[in-house]
Design a protein around this nucleic acid. Sequence first.
DNA 1: AATATTTTCAACCGCCAGAGT
DNA 2: AACTCTGGCGGTTGAAAATAT
Length: 362
Amino acid sequence: MGRHSCCYKQKLRKGLWSPEEDEKLIKHITKFGHGCWSSVPKLAGLERCGKSCRLRWINYLRPDLKRGTFSQQEEKLIIELHAVLGNKWSQIAAQLPGRTDNEIKNLWNSSIKKKLRQRGIDPNTHKPLSEVNDDHKAPSGSNEKNSQGSYQVSNLDEKPEPPAASNYPLIDNPPPATHEFFLNRFVTSHETANKQPDSHHLSAGFLPFNYTQQPPPDSTGDLFFNTDSKSSSEMNPEYSNTISNTLLSAPPRSATVFHQNNWGSSNNGSNGGFFQTNSGGYPWGLLTDCTKSQNQINATVDGEQDYTKWNDQFLQVPFLMGKSSIEGKPEPNFHELYHGQQGVDIYNKHFQRISTSYGHFS
DNA sequence: AATATTTTCAACCGCCAGAGT
DNA sequence: AACTCTGGCGGTTGAAAATAT
C-alpha cells in the first residue's frame, strides 16, 4: 500500500547523513542544480532516494538558511501566523526568511506549545484554556482575551506574573484573524520595500519587491509579474506559467559561487530585471526537468542550459498572502488580491508555490 | 561520576495533488 | 479513465544531546 516508490529500492541508505554525503550533494547541486530530484542521487553518486536528497538540501544544506536559535520576534511571528494559518508550516515558514517548515514545526512542538500552555493558552485554538476546557482555570496573566475576542501574549520567556510584564503584545490591536490582518501588518512593517523608485505596486495590497518590467522577448524562464493592474486574462500566460518553475531554487550566497552582479538585470540589458537567463553565470536550482533526456541533461552540465537566478532583493523581502474571503481558516487567495477576480486557480497555485519557495530559499 | 529522564531536531512516513502517459 | 511518477506537505519517530537525579 502506497509507499513511495523510492522506498522500495534496495541498498538505499537511510538515517543521518554523513559529511561525505553532504559534500557530494552540495557539490552536485552547486554545480548542476537539483533539477529532477529523483535523478540527483544517481548523478551525485549517492545511495539515497531523491526525496531524501531534497529534504536534506532544503532543511539543512542550502546556504541561505539562517540556523541558530529563533529570536523572540520570530517566535512571536510564528504564534501570530499559527493563529491564522494553523499547522500550515510551509506557509508560516514562507514568512520567516531562512527558516524551514520543519524547523518551525519542531520549535512549535517542542517549545512554543509548552510555553503557551504555561501561560494558559491553548496552542491549538489560541484561546484561553479556561474556554477550551472548563477544568482548566486560566492564570490571571497577560493572556486574557480582550474585548474583541482575541488575546495578547507577553514574552513567552518571561514568567506569567504579573500581567504588567507583557512587553510584547502578540498583536497590538488584534483584528479578526483574516488575511486582511497580514495585509495591514506587512504593508506597514515592510513599507520600505515599497519605496523603491522603480517599483510598481498593487493597489489592493502589495508584493513588496520590484517586479520585472517586461519579459525580454527571448527569455523562456524569467519570472514575470505584470503590475500594471491588468486582469489575469491580460497577463501573458506564457510567462505566468513559468513562475512556479523559476522559483524552486536559489543561488548560493557563498561568495565563491555567487555574484550579485549577474543577477541585477534582464538579459536584454533593460533595468529592473529580476531574473536573468541565457547569459551564463551560475547554475542553481531547476536547470533540468524530468522530461529531458540524459543528453539534454549533459548539455546542461556543459553550460548550455538556461539558468534562473534570484535577485537578492527578492530574497530579502517577505512575500505576502492575499486577502481571502473564505470564512474560518482562510487560504491564501492570490489571484483575488492580485487580479481582483476569482476563478484563476493557476495563479493561486503559483502564488503558494512562490510563497513556499521563497520561504525555503530566503 | 553514573544513570535516568527529558528535550531537541533531523529524518522518515504516508498521503495528496498535479502532470504525464 | 486509470495508472505511474514526482514533489510537497504535515505528522511522527527515535537517536543524540542536554538536563536532572
